[in-house]
Design a protein around this nucleic acid. Structure first.
Lengths: 267, 267
DNA sequence: CAGTGGTCTAGACCACACT
DNA sequence: GTGTGGTCTAGACCACTGC
């Protein structure tokens, strides 16, 4: 309770700044109060004190709990909301963001149909091709911050829109946190895979990096996507991270771009 | 001077909110003060009162000018900074963002080498293949919000890294705002093309959308990029916008992805 | 109506950059 | 030191939601 906050407990009428009270080390390491609050909130998210979809305490409550003003809590929440970790709803409260019940169904999927709105094709058909245990190769291990040979789960699936196979994905997951994941559970679950990860394995994907290339279809991918061998495909290698920037998924996707395109916004 | 701000001139000790004084129309159209301030700043940016690279007045000065508190100006500037239109530098002031002297040389180019840091290959070699006047076809006109047949400038260039041609770009610009652009000026200019647009034509690119596909190299693109005909290329169609979301450039890029990849961050 | 997030203000002090 | 942005507080009132 009241995690001290660098002697922040009695700054009743104090000004700002307020570096650590104890002798600071060589590096200044000045961290604003709202940053510390942000980290405390992050800890509560990570520990599962507040789960995806739930409301977190009101700003006033958090301000009392952390012994800071509402404005400071506000700034912390503002940043978390801008990072899509929290979701503010005026008049209702602040919610933990979730991949389920998202305004957009696939927050991390940038492939959209050439004509029509993103969701206009109806729900995608998902076919799990396989789901098996394996050992991490060197590059898989590096991507997931594991050691070569560590157990992983490997999933292969195809997404089809309007009956046309469009996306082939190979997915690698560390076996430990995803213990118990089977093809059946994947196939039976309705909704985004990342939503299943949240509810069943308490893993929330927060951030991701994608490396995109153009590659010819081969090694059997041409038949799964029903295109001629050598057809150019978009190769999308994604590493997805959880709260503390821990890599928790490697995904190699192959997208047909004859009726869809990858949409990106620069700003 | 003092653009009234919806009767905001005498809210000396008033609270927040403060909708328009005159009878509001059917739509509430409630707009927070800081949003109005943001638009006023945007107008000054657009009009060229403050040019890219320059300092804008301090928060206190702007607060006095707009007759609001520093905090309100601050929130307006915060949003503009988060949209990369302004750049805050503690102790110095707030600057108008620019494509020149950017911390990253190419803010809108997501293609990075597979190994090594983004700028590690040294400056790119730029070869202007052609720069000519033309008439907008239907799809070019639609992208640039022009009419079919309107005059446009068409530029084709190749970017090479470490001697290897890697990017071929076809660029379409509305002829009117870019009157006087020639191959020579493009070839002689050092620095990003968007920086030249800023200094020479007072056009600042602020935002862009990219549609990405995988396409085989053909129609002469294979020879300019020195790859075999049919080699998969990343096709990147970009529309770039200026301050008021006016489209000002259409760019069709073809990227080799054998030594580079397109990097994207999801969050 | 009460409770929540959202806006606005005024004033204080801190961290940083220049002179 | 002076001026800039950055942080923090306290208090007021507005807008939205649901009882």
């Amino acid at each position: 309770m009241l995690p001290t906050l660098n002697s922040m407990t009695d700054n009743i009428s104090a000004g700002a700044g307020s570096t650590v009270a104890v002798a600071a080390p060589l590096a200044p390491a000045f961290s604003p109060l709202y940053q510390q609050i942000k980290n405390l909130i992050l800890n509560s998210l990570r520990s599962g004190e507040w789960k995806p979809g739930e409301v977190i305490p009101s700003e006033m409550e958090l301000a009392a709990r952390f012994r800071v003003s509402q404005g400071t809590v506000r700034k912390a929440i503002d940043e978390l909301a801008s990072e899509n970790l929290l979701l503010r709803r005026q008049g209702k409260g602040t919610y933990v963001a979730t991949h389920a019940e998202q305004h957009v169904q696939f927050r991390f999927l940038n492939l959209v149909p050439d004509s029509g709105l993103p969701g206009s094709e109806g729900p995608a058909q998902r076919d799990i091709i396989e789901c098996r245990r394996a050992r991490a190769s060197a590059d898989i291990a590096r991507a997931l911050a594991l050691h070569t040979g560590d157990p992983v789960l490997q999933v292969r699936r195809v997404l089809s829109f309007a009956g046309t196979p469009t996306i082939l994905e190979d997915i690698w997951l560390p076996a430990v946190p995803f213990k118990g994941l089977t093809a059946e559970r994947l196939a039976n679950y309705q909704g985004p895979m990342y939503a299943l990860f949240e509810t069943e394995f308490n893993v929330r994907m927060v951030r991701a990096k994608e490396k995109i290339r153009a590659e010819p279809a081969f090694q059997g991918r041409e038949s799964l996507l029903k295109v001629a061998r050598g057809t150019p495909l978009l190769s999308v290698e994604r590493i997805a991270y959880t709260y503390q920037d821990e890599p928790m998924e490697l995904r190699r996707g192959y997208y047909r771009t004859d009726t869809h395109h990858y949409l990106n916004t620069l700003g």
